[in-house]
Design a protein around this nucleic acid. Structure first.
Lengths: 339, 339
DNA sequence: GTGAAAGCGCTAACAT
DNA sequence: ATGTTAGCGCTTTCAC
């Protein structure tokens, strides 16, 4: 209510219930000692008057803001899905989510100006990389619970860890079973725990099938550092010369670039190469043919991240917390064909 | 800063500069009368102390919150793009955007619980329909500047109006020029101003080319009301029997359903039917072949919506404001073929 | 267990 | 033009 409609205040409730200010506060917050009888009386008055505590005033006095800052690049459709989960969980706990769109550059200044003067209880951050020293120093200077998404930054909880291991093993077994022997992997930064499990599973699968694994087949790294045009040219080249017959593309932005490169070169799946992607969204479902994927629940990720942050806020001694482990699922569709 | 690091307050600044509290406040807010000299002195102290006004305290006293509530269904990728524009503009103006994910049902209770106790200066709402009487009554009861997206609700500014007219005419001229004579239109609710311009342009194009327009070729309405499975079955039927040779699909969710239906029926573009879609995003670009589209700038929409809301907040006498008009652009790609 | 009083950091109203 | 005072609505401390 922005325009000055005179709101009912804690004073009105106190008067109506015939008690002191402090007693009403105690009744609202279940804090301090209060007899069940007076508490019931106060609660009744609150109901009758339709009183809602003013969060701004509460924040000012208590230094608790019920407000989380979310720094994210909304261009990435993954994050808007995760945001849904975060929203749900936070609202349920009475927190507000304040959104700030960040790009790849100048993250610290933009965070600084966003946080300046405002009060938050914690931060959820989806950084583009984990080796931005300026950013890492800045985060440490904030002395606030911070949970990261996607990339892990030393000293802070990464809210979740995606357990890709078994799904990758499944996917590889599937590809081997339909005759593939030369499979390439495209994945993000290998420092990321979840990506480690992808790479391990990939290598283990090769080892278990006693197939030789050329290190060239594993492409890994931060998207901006590793995935240049020439990377994709090289992949296209390998596809053309049948040095690979399948690609496991475990990053949705890399997938987009790969598809663009293939399209530019008139290659298509599954005829020219079999494809398994990560993430199940409109694109993988509506492409023709639809794409076989390894799926994780984005809403669940969002919820767990919010959980971790709330715990870190309420029990700072536990911070940083270990990540929640999120399972994945292998879904076969039409983007792979037998050799 | 959540943990109690003792912040510099306006008191410290006043002491440091050797002036009264009020004077510092005046210097910060450029309000009331203050001599340039003392103002400079205060500003210098502020810089030296690294003081930032506490927004929570400012809000509490001034009843201005610098905070906007955004109610939106984040599942729709359009809105996350628009959110980027809103974010940018609001941050620039010193406002925070608080996110609330809403579904199709129970919007009022979820808005109520979100707003309860919190303070916002205004609301941006992307409702799923315009004829939800409960919602409309509720909005009116809020007495707060509200701007809507996509659907227009009586009494409130719809932030923007998309000018599809000329682009649709262009698209139709293009289709006619490559021999199409039976073109279907799929569009959202005809109450929406932007959709009216689509329908008008479509009908005008037919009239100008002196071609008969069967009313069956125009499918319009709210996605939940009009676009049932049988609607798509009917479209598929018309395509199969060459009762139509092209579809103008002006709604991205309808497009998804259409593509699913076509895929299920083994129809594909442009071989079986030519296709022109709305919105330029990953899907339309990465589909093979890529889709000819009518494009609007989503970031611009977001920015304009934020603009309108801020104006409505600062100059309530102007509310509701007329919508900004956003131009569109026709981009030819590979989803149409000559007849 | 409960009421009264102090004060969070600021702006607005009132003095001068 | 500027210093002082009174709260905004609440939680917290301190009496009792």
């Amino acid at each position: 209510m922005s325009r000055h409609k005179k709101q009912i205040s804690i004073r009105d409730v106190a008067k109506h219930a015939g008690v002191g200010l402090g007693t009403v506060s105690r009744a609202i917050n279940n804090k301090g000692s209060i007899s069940p009888k007076t508490k019931a009386k106060v609660l009744k008055s609150i109901r009758e008057l339709g009183y809602t505590p003013n969060l701004v005033a509460q924040s000012m006095r208590s230094h608790k803001y019920k407000n989380i800052a979310f720094f994210v690049d909304l261009k990435n459709p993954t994050f808007s899905r995760i945001a849904i989960g975060i929203c749900k969980r936070l609202e349920h706990e009475g927190y507000t989510l304040s959104l700030s769109h960040i790009g790849k550059e100048n993250i610290v200044p933009s965070m600084e100006s966003f946080l300046s003067g405002r009060r938050f209880d914690g931060i959820i951050l989806a950084p583009h990389r984990d080796d931005d020293e300026t950013l890492n120093r800045y985060l440490n200077s904030l002395e606030m619970p911070i949970v990261t998404l996607e990339h892990e930054i030393a000293g802070f909880s990464s809210g979740v860890e995606i357990d890709y291991y078994s799904s990758i093993k499944e996917a590889m077994a599937y590809l081997f079973s339909i005759g593939h022997k030369k499979i390439a992997l495209m994945v993000g930064a290998p420092q990321v725990r979840s990506n480690k499990s992808i790479i391990n599973a990939f290598m283990d699968a090769y080892a278990e099938h006693e197939l030789p694994l050329n290190s060239e087949l594993i492409m890994k790294g931060n998207i901006d550092d590793t995935y240049h045009q020439q990377t994709f040219n090289h992949v296209i080249h390998m596809i053309r010369h049948q040095e690979i017959t399948a690609v496991l593309c475990m990053h949705n932005q890399i997938l987009q670039l790969l598809l663009e490169a293939m399209k530019a070169d008139q290659l298509w799946f599954p005829d020219d190469v079999s494809l398994i992607a990560m993430e199940d969204y409109e694109l993988t479902q509506l492409l023709n043919p639809s794409v076989t994927v390894i799926k994780r629940s984005l809403t669940e990720i969002g919820e767990k991240v919010a959980d971790i942050l709330i715990t870190a806020i309420n029990q700072p001694e536990l911070d940083p917390l270990p990540p929640h482990v999120i399972p994945t699922q292998f879904i076969i569709r039409d983007s792979c064909r037998p050799i």
